[in-house]
């Protein structure tokens, strides 16, 4: 197995959130996890970042469980961007991006010329050149997200894990960030695993979709196979129309009606 989950089960206290999930993420492809709120998507990602410890099972990378790697070795292979980030208020973009070189840092040494080349290059390809001396807190939401993504790219990872990378952004920045992720994925041949709530973005920017329901994998595969009105009704309890986006060559949906105990939408 290149990268994936093996029989993972996650509990929060006594409540079981995820049960016996096994999935392998295809190398060099983008896989997006979708599912209702509280279905355990983020928890699955947090197992990768070790913020959540599964009660059973393990995450596997290159045939070995993550536990058998040194943390710093892992940080050179797998980069992770949580949904909410903290940063000191007075840090500039370039400094933030440079933190991505931390796993490569030799003890007692600063950034090498090679590190600085990587940082320059990353800043270039993420379009941050004009922003590199700005303080992160003065950036707009979309620019800030780009800076954080640049930091993870500086780790030169093989696997990039993103938790809801576009959740707080307006539609323009959503598009921009998704295009950036796509570009980076292609240029660096990254294996990308992310959680998205927007089904249309998920469909358009992913090679594979993974839907989570009832503590386990509900369906997995090509977006065309996952985005059908029957399956979406099962996962989200919605009725929807599915159309073909011929330009982007992917399905897109218009939600129509939600099955709900307390509210009736549509007719």
């Amino acid at each position: 197995m290149y990268f994936g989950f093996k029989d993972i089960s996650i509990n929060y206290g006594k409540r079981e959130i995820i049960k016996d999930v096994t999935i392998e993420f295809p190398k060099g492809k983008t896989t997006t996890i979708i599912g209702p709120n509280g279905s355990g998507k983020t928890s699955l990602l947090k197992v990768i970042s070790r913020a959540v410890t599964p009660v059973r099972g393990e995450v596997v990378f290159n045939g070995k469980p993550l536990k058998q790697y040194k943390l710093k070795e892992l940080a050179k292979k797998i980069a992770y961007l949580p949904q909410v980030h903290n940063s000191p208020s007075d840090i500039d973009v370039r400094t933030l991006v440079s933190y991505g070189r931390y796993p490569y840092k030799q003890f007692g040494r600063g950034l090498t010329r090679y590190d600085n080349d990587i940082i320059d290059n990353t800043i270039e390809i993420t379009g941050l050149k004009n922003l590199q001396n700005r303080l992160v807190e003065t950036l707009s939401g979309g620019e800030r997200q780009r800076a954080w993504i640049a930091m993870t790219i500086c780790q030169q990872p093989e696997v990039l894990v993103l938790d809801e990378p576009i959740t707080y952004l307006d539609i323009g920045f959503q598009l921009e960030v998704m295009e950036l992720i796509k570009k980076l994925g292609e240029e660096m041949q990254l294996t990308i695993i992310m959680v998205l709530h927007d089904i249309n973005f998920a469909s358009r920017y992913s090679h594979y979709l993974l839907s989570i329901k009832d503590k386990g994998v509900y369906s997995y595969g090509d977006p065309r196979k996952i985005i059908t009105s029957g399956k979406l009704e099962d996962i989200f309890g919605i009725q929807s129309q599915i159309f073909e986006d011929e330009k982007n060559n992917c399905p897109f949906i218009i939600p129509e009606k939600k099955r709900s105990k307390w509210l009736t939408l549509g007719n």
């Binding site: 070790r50 943390l71 710093k72 070795e73 050179k76 797998i78 961007l81 949580p82 909410v84 931390y102």
Partner: peptide, 10 residues
């Protein structure tokens, strides 16, 4: 940068 971020940076 927060525990999660620090963890994944090694």
């Amino acid at each position: 940068l927060g525990d999660e971020m620090a963890n994944s940076l090694g």
